[in-house]
Structure formats: C-alpha cells, structure tokens
C-alpha cells in the first residue's frame, strides 16, 4: 500500500511529467492560455492516461510479454516485446477515437466539456510514455493504475497552475519587455515553475 502511495507522490510532484520529464510539453504550452480550457484538458488527460495505462498493460500481459498465453501458445521464447511501440500507439489512437465516439453518444455533457481536447491527446507523448514505462518498470496492474493517475494528476496540476499564471499575470502585462512577450515569458515561467518543483525533491 505504502509503495503505491510513494509512486503516486513521486510521479505527481517530485518528478513531474511536464516540468521534470518533458513529456506533453506541446499540450502544456498550447492549452494553458485559459483556465477553463486547461481544466477541461486536465480532466481529459487524467481520463485517457489512466485508461490507456490499464488497457495497454492488459494487452501487454495477455499478448506480448514472454510469459503471456499467446506467446506460450505460439512457442515464442522472447515474446513480442519489439512490437510494443507500434501496438501501443495504435491502441492509444483507437482508444481515444472510441472514447470520443462513446462520449458523443452517451455522455453529452462530458463530451461538450472534454470533446475538443480528445483528438489532441493522441499526439501527447505523455500517454505513450506512460504505456512504455509500465513495461520498462515492470509494474503490475495496481501499480499501472496508480502510476497513470500520478502522472496525469501531475500534468493537470502543472497545466492549471500555468493557466492561472498566464491569465492573471502574463496576459496583457505591459511591464514585460517587448521582446519577451509571447513565447519567451511563458517558457521562462515554466523554467521558474520547474525550479519551484525542485522543492519536492526530498519528499520520496
């Protein structure tokens, strides 16, 4: 139990997915302009990463690991590990499409809130990163769940904090030097946030 808690704290705060591991930078910079849309994106990412983490883990265990039923039946001694990248990216792309279709049909309210962000998530490297790291770290089902939750909560946290800073401090602020307006000040803010997150370093 304590192990799971440590995984959650480590990946949401200590080695934050955006600010320490540089995964999902594109979405982090792209959707942090407004607090409202950053909340929607954060929720959509939490949902998709947790789902993708579990589904890709299940597929790995059943079809691709050396100890999986499929590889045993086919007599493949080394498993199908070399196919993980191809299979995971396709699984994620299909999963995002399915979730979008399902939401559109059955959960109208949720779709209106999160729908526009879903296609953006397929190309978010944090999702593929989580699926691949599950294999590298050799996590079991519960650990995959907690790892996915930790990473995606860390992402949502960084995204929403950044959106608050941009909306309240950066947007329309004339005291920012002219050549630093636009992307430089946002990148600089991200750098300062990364330094602030160093403060969590001794936690785990």
């Amino acid at each position: 139990m304590i192990d799971l808690l440590l995984i959650a704290i480590k990946y949401s705060l200590v080695s934050n997915v955006v600010l320490a591991q540089f995964l999902g930078i594109c979405a982090f910079l792209g959707v942090s302009k407004k607090v409202d849309s950053s909340k929607g994106m954060g929720a959509a990412v939490i949902f998709v990463i947790v789902l993708a983490s579990l589904v890709s883990h299940a597929i790995y265990v059943v079809f691709m690991a050396a100890s999986s039923p499929l590889c045993k039946a086919l007599g493949l001694k080394d498993g199908l590990e070399y196919l993980t990248t191809i299979v995971f990216i396709l699984v994620i792309a299909a999963l995002v499409q399915l979730v979008e279709m399902f939401m559109k049909k059955n959960m109208k309210g949720l779709y209106d809130a999160l729908g526009v962000f879903l296609p953006l998530i397929t190309t978010n490297c944090a999702v593929l990163g989580v699926a691949l790291n599950n294999v590298t770290y050799g996590y079991n089902f519960a650990e995959c769940l907690v790892y996915g939750l930790g990473i995606s909560i860390g992402f949502a946290l960084a995204l929403i904090l950044m959106a608050f800073i941009r909306e309240n401090v950066i947007e329309g602020n004339d005291s920012i030097p002219k050549s630093f307006q636009g992307s430089p000040i946002v990148l600089l803010t991200a750098g300062l946030m990364a330094i602030a997150f160093f403060g969590f370093a001794g936690l785990v």
Partner: peptide
C-alpha cells in the same frame, strides 16, 4: 530541467 526552458526562452 529548468535550464532547458530558460535557454529556449532567451533564444526565443
């Protein structure tokens, strides 16, 4: 990690 953001910010 923070250095990456800062260097790119100054370059930009």
């Amino acid at each position: 990690a923070p250095g990456a953001f800062i260097v790119l910010a100054f370059l930009s």
